[in-house]
């Protein structure tokens, strides 16, 4: 055993999720190779940048989802938050409000809805899966009631440079993703708040006993996810210039899938933002590649599902020997 006075960071200490991150990188390389061989269009700058833009909303939302899952929670209503925020944004634009009013409005809408989720799961003591299932219904209902089957179209693309623009030779969307993940990373790793997240995910009763304000931390985290959903809605509207009812239907599940693929444990207490980002990259590249290869995109769900099963099985087998307290 090392001496007690050895306070230098142990060189052998490797992040617990590193093996998953490496595996994902390998998988991405493998998949890219396959697609490059199968289609001449794959490895073009244009295609890759387009793919990244398609993954913009998913990557932003997944960052927030990672924090929620590390904390031991879950949120299946994110699609609804995106939808309702988009409606708020669309209506605000239609009312003629300028972009510097609409933007905070959209962000606040998302944050409020996220905070609602946090409130229901902490103060009303409803388990997160039920709470967010219920709120998903409610948000969908709001969306249908306001829009019906119609679209809100012809919206200004004022923010579209953030999606489609370039800063030098870097695509703007990449920068947006980078900023969001940097902020999430600081929250998770550089602030006491992040430690509290991990602690709550590990064992909520213990976290309470050491004096962590669990309720407040939870509400903040769900609200942050809502904030990111609002941001995603802003960028979506900027890109598509309209709001229609299919927005956000699968984003919650895809975000959860990306997060789990990336090495975050569904039980909480362990997680990786880098892994989540790699998970998003993988999912979007799969989608893109399948389309280029002429394979129906319907197979993508099967592939993600099967991958999740493999990943979960691998995790389960690896943890077989640890007596894990529930």
């Amino acid at each position: 055993m090392a001496s007690v006075a050895d306070t230098r960071p142990a060189l052998r200490f490797v992040s617990p999720t590193a093996s998953r991150e490496l595996a994902l990188i390998a998988a991405i390389i493998l998949v890219c190779t396959v697609f490059t061989v199968a289609s001449p269009y794959f490895l073009s700058v244009n295609n890759l940048v387009q793919t990244m833009r398609a993954g913009l909303e998913l990557s932003i939302v997944s960052a927030g989802m990672t924090l929620v899952i590390i904390m031991g929670g879950i949120d299946v209503s994110v699609g609804g938050i995106v939808a309702v925020s988009a409606i708020v944004i669309g209506k605000a634009y239609q009312a003629g409000l300028p972009v510097y009013v609409v933007t905070p409005l959209g962000l606040m809408a998302g944050t409020a809805l996220g905070a609602f989720n946090g409130f229901v799961t902490t103060k009303l003591k409803v388990p997160p899966i039920i709470a967010t299932l219920g709120s998903m219904y409610i948000f969908s209902a709001i969306m249908f009631l306001v829009i019906g089957g119609a679209w809100i179209s012809g919206l200004p693309g004022t923010l579209s440079p953030l999606v489609n623009g370039w800063l030098g030779f870097l695509p703007a969307s990449a920068l947006v993703i980078a900023v969001v993940y940097a902020i999430a990373w600081v929250l998770l790793r550089k602030l006491p708040y992040g430690n509290h997240l991990y602690a709550i995910g590990c064992s909520e009763p213990s976290a309470r006993l050491v004096g962590i304000n669990v309720d407040r931390t939870k509400i903040l985290t769900y609200a942050f996810l809502g904030l990111l959903a609002g941001l995603a809605a802003l960028l979506y509207v900027a890109r598509m210039r309209n709001v229609e009812i299919n927005i956000g239907t699968t984003i919650a599940l895809e975000a959860i899938a990306a997060t789990i693929l990336g090495g975050t444990s569904i039980r909480g207490g362990v997680g990786s933002l880098l892994g989540t980002l790699l998970g998003v990259v993988f999912i979007r590249i799969m989608q893109n590649g399948l389309v280029l290869m002429g394979i129906s995109s319907l197979w993508e769900t099967v592939i993600i599902g099967s991958l999740l099963i493999c990943v979960l099985t691998a995790d389960a087998l690896r943890n077989r020997n640890n007596p894990r307290a529930q």
Partner: peptide, 25 residues
């Protein structure tokens, strides 16, 4: 395998549902 039920059935939901859609286009 003791995979948490939420995750496991979420994954099979993807896999089974996707299979249904993909095989019938």
């Amino acid at each position: 395998l003791r995979i948490p039920s939420l995750m496991a059935t979420l994954a099979t939901m993807f896999a089974f549902g996707g299979l249904a859609l993909a095989t019938t286009l």
